[in-house]
């Protein structure tokens, strides 16, 4: 191992720390200021909600093969109830950060919070 190899390894490890730090303290992510949730079904946009401006909780009933209720509150959204087979969408829980996503494959429904 020559001196230059050690420098090179150090650079890689520094890059690891730098990228990790950038992802950990990403500006938009930490403050969570602008959360826009989109609900899509069959690749069609059903509704686009700015979660920060939601004043009172409400529920959206999705059409389709299965009966699904989406619950919207200030700053968060979730699949509240569904009668699809696996209920993976319900188990995904509340979505509140940009990048969070809940999917119901049987009903072809996706809730996503935009980054």
């Amino acid at each position: 191992m020559k001196r230059n190899d050690i420098i090179l390894t150090m650079i890689i490890i520094l890059a690891v720390i730098a990228t990790w730090g950038c992802l950990k303290w990403h500006p938009g992510r930490a403050e969570n200021t602008h959360c826009i949730a989109t609900i899509t079904q069959n690749h069609k946009l059903i509704e686009r909600i700015d979660l920060n401006t939601v004043s009172e909780a409400r529920e959206i009933i999705l059409p389709g093969k299965y009966h699904e209720i989406i619950q919207v509150e200030k700053g968060r959204i979730r699949f509240k109830e569904a009668n699809c087979p696996d209920k993976i969408c319900v188990k995904a829980g509340w979505l509140e950060k940009p990048g969070d996503i809940a999917v119901c494959l049987p009903n072809k429904a996706v809730i996503k919070i935009e980054d």
């Binding site: 191992m1 020559k2 230059n4 190899d5 090179l8 390894t9 890689i12």
Partner: peptide, 11 residues
């Protein structure tokens, strides 16, 4: 700029 095989392999 000289690297050994180890360094080149890591890179």
């Amino acid at each position: 700029f000289r690297f050994s095989l180890l360094g080149i392999s890591v890179a």
